[in-house]
Design a protein around this nucleic acid. Structure first.
Length: 328
DNA sequence: AGGCAAACAATATGGGTACT
DNA sequence: AGTACCCATATTGTTTGCCT
């Protein structure tokens, strides 16, 4: 299995009118990539600029950032040609690696725009190296710039940042510096294509938590009544659990619950409702073992919601009564 | 019927990070 | 300039049950 570490640069509309005229939001104008073998040694590279067909003026901010101008792109090949060659170059046995979570989506959006055959019909499993960096060297949550990570690992800065090849190269260097094999359990999933049926749904168990990505649902209520979505079976052993706190939400988008597994103790579950590419609903559910503090946090959150609502009610009712009485 | 409050929903806003 | 993601809080609206 090879690692395809790639990075894209893209342009966008320079003015409002151009933005509204085009269905494509970001137009890819450069692809850079490094191929690593199983030992994460570099075995090949890929780099090509792309002649734009949608935006013919460089957005000011984008241009300042990536230092590419339209003249450089004039004689380049078009996106379908370059992208097809890039995918051919990738081979057949690989996993994509990117810095951050945007590149795979934008690649697929651009390919769809030109009606190219999709990279995959399924949800793509890949490595978000930005996330791996945080897990390997920091707090597992923070999101750092590529430059920060390069400085942190004291990687030699021999090319300028914010060009596709350079950023792919640095990302590959960072990836190669992650030695703990456990970090590589932390796959990411690009949800440009979501699971189309129950069997394609994603269930992944990490070291200390598990994640579930559902198929698409037409609306929220069908999602939130689905058996598999609401299921609170223990993610470690699959056993039935006892609900300690029923599902509750503070804003209708995030739902929380606390359950107890006889063997694995208290478990916190969280459901996030999200919009899919074609405006449907899907669910990301995470489960993790909860120590007493985490359980208390959830209890506090629940009571806080209740209290703040109660307070507001009282406040508004007092205002109502005082206003009807004509008091200040 | 009308008033009230809790609970439940949905949306809006503002803070942060990152990416081009 | 714009996007995505994450968080938390605020605001507004709807439903439900209980009271007078």
């Amino acid at each position: 299995m090879n690692y395809i570490v790639f990075d894209l640069e893209w342009n966008q509309a320079a003015d409002l009118r151009t933005r509204l005229e085009n269905s494509l939001l970001f137009e890819i104008i450069e692809i850079g990539a490094i191929k690593l073998n199983e030992n994460r040694d570099q075995i090949a590279d890929f780099h090509e600029l792309i002649r734009p067909q949608v935006f013919h003026t460089m957005n000011q901010v984008t241009g300042d950032l990536i230092h590419i101008n339209m003249e450089q792109l004039a004689d380049c090949r078009s996106f379908p040609e370059v992208a097809a060659d890039f995918l051919k170059w990738c081979g057949s046995n690989y996993i994509f690696c990117t810095w951050g979570n945007l590149d795979l989506t934008e690649l697929q959006r651009n390919m769809d725009y030109y009606h190219m055959p999709p990279v995959s019909q399924k949800t793509i499993k890949y490595y978000d190296v930005q996330k791996l960096f945080s897990i390997a060297f920091e707090d597992k949550k923070s999101r750092r710039t590529l430059q920060y990570a390069v400085d942190f690992l004291e990687i030699k800065k021999d090319v300028a940042f914010h060009r596709a090849y350079a950023d792919a190269y640095y990302t590959a260097k960072i990836l190669a510096q992650i030695t703990q094999t456990k970090v590589f359990d932390n796959y990411s999933f690009d949800t440009y294509h979501l699971p189309q049926n129950k069997s394609e749904e994603i269930w992944i168990c990490f070291e200390d938590y598990a994640k579930y990505i559902s198929r698409e649902f037409p609306d929220k209520s069908t999602a939130m009544t689905d058996q598999k979505v609401l299921s609170t079976k223990c993610f470690l052993c699959g056993a039935k659990t006892k609900k300690k706190i029923p599902w509750f939400t503070n804003n209708g988008k995030h739902y929380y619950t606390i359950v107890r597994c006889a063997r694995h103790g208290m478990i916190k579950e969280k459901i996030r409702l999200r919009k899919s590419e074609n405006d449907q609903i899907y669910v990301v559910k995470t489960m993790k073992q909860a120590n007493p503090e985490i359980v208390q946090d959830i209890l506090n959150k629940k009571s806080q919601i209740r209290n703040s609502r109660k307070e507001r009610r009282h406040k508004s009712s007092r205002e109502d009564s005082s206003s009807t009485l004509g008091l200040p």
